[in-house]
Design a protein around this nucleic acid. Structure first.
Length: 419
RNA sequence: GUGGAUGUAGCUCAGGGGUUAGAGCACCGGAUUGUGGUUCCGGGGGCCGUGGGUUCAAUUCCCAUCAUCCACCCCA
């Protein structure tokens, strides 16, 4: 029995819970005000859902890094490595194409990838995901990016870099891949091993390489953005125009690419400084055609996912992350056995209005007040023979040291009014 | 899969081939049989990650292994 969480997983202790509340509230407000609705889907799906969405040319690693298992009925199931496929599966399952367009959904929860861990990267990690379905309009792309930006701002993050690009339409991508392949093939021997493998499968991914000689070879070549078809170019320009109109700063990213096949046209990422090598807080893109792949009607869509752990990391750097376990309003200290019963009963009745905890055994006042202090309570109320004689509790404001007596009937009012 | 760093108390860490391994914080008790935080005193807690090797002797040195962190890789 190893008393340690599985590699790449972690416990969210009471002290860290407020951050999750903070995130959930911000999302509910910012996304909710845009008419987005919350959707919760299962953490696992039939493996086929992810296989179909991932596509054929995606790196084999993508397959390898999925947590996949057989259940007792022999079904192949997979823990979701991302949200999009499951959300779109639900879109199809529930016939959401008949809902008013666009359908705008957000989700929050864990996802799973069997990767090696490092700062900002876990095996069970969490994403806040958003999908905007049913319209090809560039306005929807801009809205998606703006909402992501607004949500991060609401969380206190201002030092952000928005990178906007486009992977083009499928035919643009095919043409660009062919161009890259032709241009690089004569220099295949100079490419890194990884990039050489990609030359066949998905040459665009070579743009992601950090290898210096790879980048040197790429330096003189056109970027995907240089070779967009007129439609994709027009789409990107309109997204950029909308963002500019709305005052959202961004950088054009000429060589932004995606590992998955289903992306087309708009692709974007948001990065933060100061949180280590894994600096991408969120990323997304347009995936017209994916719903169809999953068995639904042809439906355009765009979406993004925000990495919760990385966002918390950035918020910690920015000093905007909420921390601290919840503390009671009042801590009751029984000073004899009869008072123990009285404290339990009083706590129960006061809990309609206040957060109340108490000692479960008789305590000397010094110990009881120490307990109260450690609980973080604002007030302590003590009860012994002396109080019982007059039907009161001795109440002490633990911050100021002020002390007074109060009947059980008035206790809640007294403390409410003093806070 | 690769590289580097680190594994000693609940936490953060110091130490060092030689008898019972230390500090701060935290925890428990006492000073305090009706008053917390500050202070003082005392106490409980450790297969010094694991296995092997060298040695009269290993927590210390060596090797392996596992784990953690950071980075590479990868990144839906």
């Amino acid at each position: 029995m190893r008393s340690r969480a599985v590699k790449g997983t972690y416990d969210v202790l009471p002290d860290a819970q407020p951050a999750w509340t903070q995130l959930e509230r911000a999302a509910t407000r910012v996304l909710g005000h845009a008419g987005m609705q919350r959707l919760t889907t299962p953490v696992f799906e039939h493996s086929e859902v992810f296989d179909r969405s991932v596509g054929e040319s995606a790196d084999l690693v993508v397959q390898k890094e999925m947590y996949r298992f057989e259940d007792r009925g022999g079904r192949s199931l997979t823990l979701r490595p991302e949200f999009t496929a499951g959300v779109l599966r639900a879109f199809v399952t529930h016939g959401m194409h008949t809902w008013p367009t666009p359908v705008k959904l957000w989700s929050l929860g864990p996802a799973f990838r069997a990767e090696n861990v490092q700062r900002g990267r876990f095996r069970q990690f969490h994403q806040l995901n958003a999908e905007f379905l049913g319209l090809p309009s560039p306005l929807l792309d801009a809205e998606a990016i703006a909402l992501l930006h607004d949500l991060l701002s609401a969380l206190g993050l201002s030092d952000l870099r928005v990178k906007l690009g486009s992977v083009g339409d499928p035919e643009d991508r095919a043409a660009y891949n062919a161009y890259l392949r032709d241009a690089l093939a004569p220099h295949a021997g100079e490419l890194s091993a990884n990039s050489r493998a990609r030359l066949d499968v998905n040459p665009m991914r070579i743009l992601d390489s950090k290898d210096e000689s790879d980048q040197a070879l790429l330096a003189g070549l056109d970027k995907p953005l240089d070779r967009l078809g007129p439609d994709a170019r027009e789409h990107l320009d309109q997204v950029a125009q909308a963002l500019s109109d709305w005052g959202i700063a961004f950088d054009m990213a000429p060589s932004i690419v995606r590992g998955l096949d289903y992306y087309r046209r708009t692709a974007f990422e948001i990065h933060a400084e100061g949180i280590g090598a894994q600096s991408a807080l969120a990323g997304g893109g347009r995936y017209d055609g994916l719903v169809e792949t999953l068995g639904g009607p042809p439906t355009p869509g765009i979406g993004w996912a925000l990495g919760v752990e990385r966002v918390f990391d950035a918020m910690r750097e920015a000093g905007t992350l909420h921390t601290g376990a919840a503390k009671p309003d009042l801590y009751l200290v029984p000073m004899d056995d009869l008072a123990v019963t009285e404290a339990a009963e009083l706590a129960r009745s006061l809990r309609q209005r206040l957060t109340v905890t108490h000692a479960y055994t008789a305590r000397k006042p010094a110990k009881g007040l120490k307990d109260a202090d450690r609980s973080g309570a604002r007030f302590a109320a003590l009860r012994g023979e002396r109080e019982r004689a007059t039907g009161v509790w001795t109440v002490k404001n633990l911050a100021t040291g002020d002390q007074f007596e109060s009947t059980t009937e008035r206790l809640a009012d007294t403390i409410d009014g003093t806070s």
